[in-house]
């Protein structure tokens, strides 16, 4: 039994050490409305969402590629809280995500979905690209090319 606990600890501890920022909508709101000169790319996703996982590397890629252009990617996970330790944190670790990842834990969906964007039906994945007052919302999946094309509209010439 002692050994079992020890083994359990070895496996569980590193994962639990990983800090995860969890917000309700009021906490998330300032993060998706930053009034600086950066281009912000906000992607709503979840580890179990197939099309989200497929496009996630594209967001990681632009985060790295356009770092010098003041582009910041924020990955907002909608995984269930009970999955934070068993799915979300291991995923972040396994795929070594460089973009900032936060979790949105707010059950009042009817409030925050239209607050994030009036046109959002609530389906995942969804993405916002904004800079200052210029803002575009996408309820769709991207190819890497499409994502870069959209992003470039927001970059300074």
């Amino acid at each position: 039994m002692k050994h079992f606990l020890l083994i359990l600890l070895i496996f569980v501890l590193p994962v639990q050490d990983e800090k995860l920022e969890v917000y309700d909508y009021d906490g998330l709101e300032p993060l998706i409305n930053q009034n600086d000169d950066k281009v912000h790319v906000v992607n709503f996703w979840a580890t179990w969402c197939g099309p989200c996982i497929k496009e996630l590397p594209y967001f990681e890629a632009i985060n790295e590629k356009y770092d010098d252009d003041n582009v910041e990617v924020l990955l907002v996970s909608l995984d269930f809280p009970k999955k934070y330790d068993t799915a979300l944190k291991p995923y972040i670790e396994k795929h070594k995500l460089k973009s900032r990842v936060v979790a949105l834990n707010d059950t009042d969906q009817n409030r925050w979905i239209p607050a994030i964007n009036e046109n959002w039906s609530g389906a995942l994945p969804a993405t916002i690209i904004y800079r200052g007052n210029k803002r575009q919302f996408y309820e769709k999946s991207f190819t890497q090319e499409e994502l870069e094309t959209e992003l470039k509209q927001f970059l300074k010439n």
Binding site: C49, G50, Q109, N110, G122, L124, P125
Partner: peptide
């Protein structure tokens, strides 16, 4: 009319 979070229809 309300909004609900959900998985996109495949």
């Amino acid at each position: 009319e309300t909004r609900a979070i959900g998985c996109s229809i495949k």
